[in-house]
């Protein structure tokens, strides 16, 4: 083994984002899908009227929570996809390029979701 261990400053933070993204995505996305994709269309719960739903969506807390969910889920994807490319497709030699594409994609996606959720409406 190479004698002086190569320490990594970014990896722990990227892993924390990956890890928390996995947790929030696994906890909240199925609930949202079940609610808006199944329960409401099938009439299991009463359909909220449009004005009420819009008021909930426009509340600052809802926007921040949805933004948090989007950003963390994007960073979860970026980390997982980076390792899929590194190890699954053996592209480790393109390490820096893959990292820029994955995490850069997550940053771009986060900016777009911030724009959409905080400014666009």
């Amino acid at each position: 083994m190479a004698a002086p261990a190569r320490r990594t400053r970014a990896e722990p933070l990227l892993w924390l984002l990956f890890s928390s993204g996995g947790v929030v995505a696994a906890l909240f996305i199925p609930v949202l899908l079940l609610l808006f994709g199944v329960a409401i269309p099938l009439g299991w719960v009463s359909t909220p009227d449009h004005a009420h739903l819009l008021a909930v969506l426009q509340h600052p807390v809802t926007r921040v929570v949805l933004l948090g969910l989007c950003v963390l889920a994007l960073f979860h994807w970026a980390h997982r996809f980076r390792y899929t490319l590194h190890e699954g497709l053996r592209l480790k030699r393109l390490g820096t390029l893959v990292e820029i594409l994955c995490y850069g994609g997550a940053v771009a996606g986060s900016l777009i979701s911030a724009y959409l959720l905080l400014w666009a409406w």
């Binding site: 083994m1 261990a5 190569r6 320490r7 990594t8 990896e11 722990p12 390792y83 190890e87």
Partner: peptide, 14 residues
């Protein structure tokens, strides 16, 4: 900690 927290330590595990 130095060996475990290195890039070739725990962070290599997927």
């Amino acid at each position: 900690v130095d060996v475990l927290s290195a890039a070739d330590g725990v962070w290599s595990c997927t």
